[in-house]
């Protein structure tokens, strides 16, 4: 589905050269939910922007369904960490979700309404259509952003540390929401986080990134049962084992750097 080959990104400017991403290669299978986890400042956001076609990589390719990504591709939706800045404060919740759909010329108004309706119901916001985003709590705003992404009917959903700025309770709810949306819609999800627990809880597979300049340090298949919940899954000894393993990897990466 999504293929990354030898991706490198170097920022150059004012006589300074910063290699944010060195050499990344990995593949996402259709319908897979994979998590990217790595230490803070390891170029996760850079990587995601390259995948989304927002940044041109310095070397290497990103392929979506076999086509090279050079600009934001149609079958991809991105959920940003900064929900407050990604939702437009002058549009009501419904209009925020509908805005990308209105650019799809072939889509009927009827169908647009349905999609907006359905995706807001999917994230549990049937009552907030007429609110402005800033009238909602942070967690609800991020739900709106997720609704906007799924209404867009993407094949691949990219999420950039979407829950980094919400409180722990809300975060747990949103994690379950992502799992449910993924199962309901059969979409391919790449979830970027710096939180190891979150990565293990959510993913079928976890890619551990090294410190900047970034490479894929290790890939782990998380063979926990498909039905996960916050209490039993997190208490599962295998969960703890995965978590320890990844934690060690990341520590090792930091030491290697220092």
């Amino acid at each position: 589905m999504l293929e990354v080959r030898g991706l490198q990104k170097v920022y150059e400017g004012a006589g300074r050269r910063v290699e944010a991403v060195r050499d990344l290669t990995f593949t996402l299978e259709p319908g897979e939910l994979a998590c990217l986890v790595g230490p803070s400042g390891c170029g996760k956001t850079t990587l995601l922007k390259c995948l989304a076609g927002l940044l041109a990589p310095s070397a290497g390719d990103v392929l979506l369904g076999g086509h090279k990504v050079t600009a934001p591709p149609p079958g991809m939706a991105l959920v940003f960490q900064e929900y407050g800045r990604s939702l437009y404060p002058w549009l009501r919740v419904r209009d925020n979700v509908e805005l990308p759909l209105r650019q799809k010329k072939e889509m009927s108004r009827q169908r647009r309404r349905e999609l907006v309706e359905r995706s807001l119901a999917e994230v549990g916001l049937t009552h907030a259509h007429d609110a402005y985003p800033w009238q909602l709590s942070g967690g609800m705003q991020q739900r709106v952003a997720i609704a906007r992404a799924i209404a867009y009917e993407p094949e691949v959903l990219l999420m950039d540390e979407p829950f980094a700025a919400v409180d722990a309770q809300t975060r747990a709810d949103l994690e379950d929401l992502v799992r449910r949306v993924w199962q309901d819609l059969g979409v391919t999800v790449l979830f970027v986080t710096h939180d190891i627990d979150e990565a293990v809880y959510l993913g079928q597979r976890v890619l551990v990134l090294s410190n900047s300049p970034t490479v894929v340090q290790e890939q782990l298949t998380i063979d926990l049962p498909d039905e996960r919940d916050q209490l039993t899954t997190r208490a599962d000894p295998r969960f703890t084992a995965f978590r320890t393993r990844i934690y060690e990897q990341i520590q090792a990466a930091k030491v290697a750097k220092a």
Partner: peptide, 25 residues
């Protein structure tokens, strides 16, 4: 910047970006 990137990632064409993003912002 994030608002601009949002518009780009959802492939809003230039007139829509002007009308729904730049002018209101």
């Amino acid at each position: 910047q994030v608002m601009i990137e949002t518009a780009r990632s959802y492939r809003l064409p230039a007139p829509a970006r002007l009308r729904h993003l730049v002018l209101p912002a």
